[in-house]
């Protein structure tokens, strides 16, 4: 009962934060609320037994993401322009999509049901064998690094690709502003290795 109340309070706080994010036109305040949103969702992850996910969400969602957003704000704009477009069409699209999704939830297994299909497939095998086969007591770590290690390798590839993309985008931005100083890559000195 008490867990249900905690869940409900956190979910309502998340909803209030999200609605305020729609209304705020000051982007700095909106980014701060986005950080609050991440922290609240991390608390909800703890309430739902996902402690590792809560760590990551608090560090990545609440920390790094906020820093990146603030950096982007410093390079772009601090205020959102007044809204000129029609709001009714987006509202209609959102309500229609939401209604379809709500209709879809009717068939879902009940929250916390131990007989739900998600709990009867490979998870029991991992829970039974991970301490013996892997020797790590944290099941999430054991699955992440061992049973599904290729997923994590793919994730690393994605992060690397994103890093390269960001590097190219920002470098060409600075070059077009003429802020790149020193030898360029295609300058003869850089190619021959002399500084």
């Amino acid at each position: 009962m008490i867990m249900t109340l905690i869940d409900l309070a956190l979910i309502l706080a998340l909803l209030a934060t999200a609605v305020m994010m729609i209304r705020l036109r000051n982007l700095f305040a909106m980014v701060m609320l986005a950080g609050v949103f991440s922290l609240l969702s991390a608390s909800l992850f703890v309430a739902l037994d996902a402690v590792d996910v809560a760590f990551t969400e608090a560090a990545v969602g609440g920390g790094i993401s906020t820093v990146l957003m603030l950096g982007a704000l410093a390079l772009t704009a601090r205020h959102e322009a007044p809204i000129r477009r029609n709001q009714l069409v987006p509202l209609g699209v959102t309500i229609a999509t939401g209604a379809a999704l709500l209709y879809g939830t009717a068939d879902l297994p009940l929250f916390g049901d131990p007989a739900a299909p998600v709990h009867t497939h490979v998870a029991p095998y991992y829970l039974a064998t991970a301490p013996k086969e892997i020797g790590i007591d944290n099941f999430v770590t054991a699955i992440l690094a061992s049973y599904r290690g290729f997923d994590t390798l793919g994730e690393t590839m994605v992060v690397f690709t994103a890093g390269v993309a960001v590097l190219f985008l920002l470098r060409s931005a600075r070059r077009s502003r003429g802020e790149v100083s020193g030898p360029r890559d295609d300058a003869p000195d850089a190619r021959s290795g002399k500084v």
């Binding site: 996902a50 590792d52 996910v53 990551t56 969400e57 990545v60 969602g61 790094i64 993401s65 990146l68 998600v118 490979v122 998870a123 991992y126 829970l127 099941f139 999430v140 699955i143 992440l144 599904r148 997923d151 994590t152 994730e155 994605v158 992060v159």
Partner: peptide, 15 residues
């Protein structure tokens, strides 16, 4: 633990 693993990956890809 399986959804936790998938979402850990998703958070990092999301950032």
């Amino acid at each position: 633990p399986l959804p936790h693993v998938l979402i850990l990956t998703a958070i990092v890809v999301g950032i």
